[in-house]
Nucleic acid binder design. Structure first.
Length: 562
DNA sequence: GCCGTTTTCGGCCCGACTGTTTTCAGTCG
């Protein structure tokens, strides 16, 4: 059986971790991590590509190309097997601990035989760590604190949780003196920690932070780190004249920063968070805005959502960045539930809210029956609902379209007859049950649904719930390929609990010519405002307005849906 | 391990903070 890109990427990253513990050349390690990222987000399956094709991809050379081919066919490769014979593979769990890196893991293993977090806890509590040269009492404390933190940590935050942390920190800071940067600003669907730039004086802000922090991690004049709501917050202090370079640095991503700094080197510059230094003269040029700094480098402004080193720097150099979709391009919401199924808001009120959002239309996609969710609409109810939609449309500026969200059954068939579906304006087909099937079975179910010509959109295509459920196993490469052939759109579910498809797959879909349907999946009128999370994720997936169904007029949408 | 309008060898982003230190390694972002 051939391995998917996700599986190959996983093996490459695993090799990177083992090489780190082994103490290999850091640039070799970086090459493995980079190759892992590249394979994961590649629109084409690596299975079936030959060595030459793989080698053509920037960041993948002859050596890793050979390994990828081995991994595709066998699931492993010779070098990995050799590494596994040298290093206990479960050592990598220790890398998850904050403050513990590969060097420390290797020493703990070689000196004390520590192979797991439980081993480390026992040795630290027994005060046996301090016997190792270069380690002391304080290290034992740090290790135990890291273990405690890891055990209670809930993983990465969803957007709501991240916003809650920002809300909690904000009162300690003077309005207008700070900006949230990092993955929060890049709009990632999950956020690891909160990064903030402050122009206040450290001597003023640090004491206030001590007041609100649950624990201080670092405290300095340039940088302060602490924990609040059990989450890590990093603050970097900056003068307003250097705000642009600090903002660029702290927004990242790390690979983007590296790429930009490499580019600067070729032009004779050195970039840091303080500005751009001319190599020859040593003169530091300061920038109060990011725009000025990009301009100095001869680049157009690269929006934060694109800063992932997914090719945006090269496109910027060629002045060929995509014009990204924005809130003002959105003319409707494609996934809304009313009180006819499991929503709480009547159709009339939804239309009013849609009008307030500035929409031309919303698509009312109540559930069809036969789902475990109550109140599914049978054909009779669909007719009754049609009447209410008609009444609402007489008085509303925002038109309500007649849609349905129908289940994809275990055999890939659809939970309503074709005759009923054909009468509706818009059909979303989603999986709501049978999540545990094997990858191939799940994939065939979705492919089957797409073959039904009445199906316009596949809803929340991976079924993930951020922080709760990883989603079912599905080969998205095959789904995207068939979506392009059958002209089926893929949903970008805008709920911060889903954001499904995620950015990387949105980009793969768009690169393959598949349309994206952004829907809030709102179950009450207030949730229509969650569209903004969907738009941000679409931007992260390089969506132009023309890639997104919601930018169509109601007439064009109806025509597209047939 | 990857890469190349100065290179097929010799580079590979840059800086802050801590602990255990007599000058720095490790980790992190």
């Amino acid at each position: 059986m051939e391995r998917s890109n996700q599986q190959v990427a996983g093996v490459l990253a695993f090799m990177g971790q083992l090489l780190e513990i082994k103490g290999e050349n850091v640039f070799k390690i970086r090459a493995f991590y980079r190759a892992s990222d590249i394979v994961e987000r590649l629109a084409r399956p690596v299975a079936g590509m030959d060595e030459h094709e793989l080698d053509q991809i920037e960041g993948i050379g002859k050596n890793i190309a050979k390994k990828i081919i081995e991994i595709v066919t066998t699931g492993t490769c010779a070098e990995l097997e050799e590494l596994k014979s040298e290093i206990p593979t479960h050592l990598i769990e220790l890398l998850k601990l904050e403050g513990i890196g590969p060097k420390t893991v290797a020493i703990l293993w070689k000196k004390l035989g520590i192979q797991s977090i439980d081993d480390l806890e026992r040795e630290a509590k027994g005060h046996r760590i301090r016997a190792i040269k270069g380690f002391g009492e304080k290290k034992e404390e740090i290790f135990l604190a890291s273990i405690a933190h890891l055990r209670k940590e809930a993983g990465r935050m969803n957007r709501f949780e991240a916003e809650a942390v920002v809300e909690k920190v904000s009162p300690a800071m003077t309005p207008g003196t700070f900006e949230v940067a990092g993955s929060f600003r890049r709009g990632k669907s999950t956020v690891g920690d909160i990064d903030i730039i402050s122009t206040e004086r450290p001597s003023v802000l640090n004491p206030k932070i001590r007041q609100i922090a649950e624990a201080m991690i670092d405290e300095g004049d340039r940088k302060t780190s602490f924990r609040i709501l059990s989450r890590r917050v990093d603050i970097r202090f900056s003068r307003p004249e250097q705000f642009g370079s600090m903002s660029l640095y702290l927004t990242g991503s790390k690979p983007f920063n590296i790429r930009l700094r490499e580019l600067a080197i070729t032009k004779g510059y050195k970039i840091s968070e303080y500005g751009i230094e001319e190599r020859d003269t040593g003169k530091l040029v300061e920038f109060s805005t990011e725009e000025d700094m990009f301009a100095f480098l001869g680049l157009p402004y690269i929006p934060p959502e694109l800063r992932e080193d997914w090719g945006e720097v090269e496109r910027a150099r060629a002045n060929d960045l995509p014009k990204l979709v924005g809130q003002s391009d959105i003319r409707g919401d494609l996934h809304v539930h009313s009180d006819w199924s499991d929503g709480r808001t009547p159709i009339g009120k939804l239309a009013e809210t849609g009008a307030l959002m500035g929409y031309d239309y919303i698509v009312c996609t109540d559930h069809a029956p036969r789902t475990h969710i109550m109140h599914g609409l049978d054909p009779d109810k669909i007719k009754e609902r049609a009447h209410e939609i008609e009444v609402a449309n007489r008085s509303s500026r925002c038109r309500v379209l007649e849609g349905i969200e129908v289940d994809i059954m275990s055999d890939g068939s659809i939970g309503l007859s074709d005759a009923v579906l054909a009468d509706l304006d818009f059909v979303i087909a989603s999986i709501h049950a049978g999540f545990r099937e094997e990858r191939d079975v799940m994939t065939r179910r979705i492919l089957g649904a797409m073959e039904n010509e009445n199906v316009d959109v596949i809803g929340h295509p991976t079924g993930r719930l951020i922080g709760q459920r990883t989603g079912y196993e599905v080969d998205l490469s095959r789904v995207i390929e068939l979506a392009a052939r059958t002209k089926t759109a893929l949903e970008l579910n805008a709920s911060p609990y889903r954001l499904d498809l995620d950015d990387m797959y949105v980009k793969q879909a768009v690169d393959t010519g598949v349309k994206i349907a952004i829907g809030t999946d709102a179950h009450q009128s207030g949730e229509l405002s969650e569209m903004r999370y969907g738009i941000t994720t679409a931007r992260r997936g390089w969506c132009r307005p023309s890639d997104v169904l919601n930018t169509m007029s109601a007439e064009s949408l109806l025509e597209w849906a047939g």
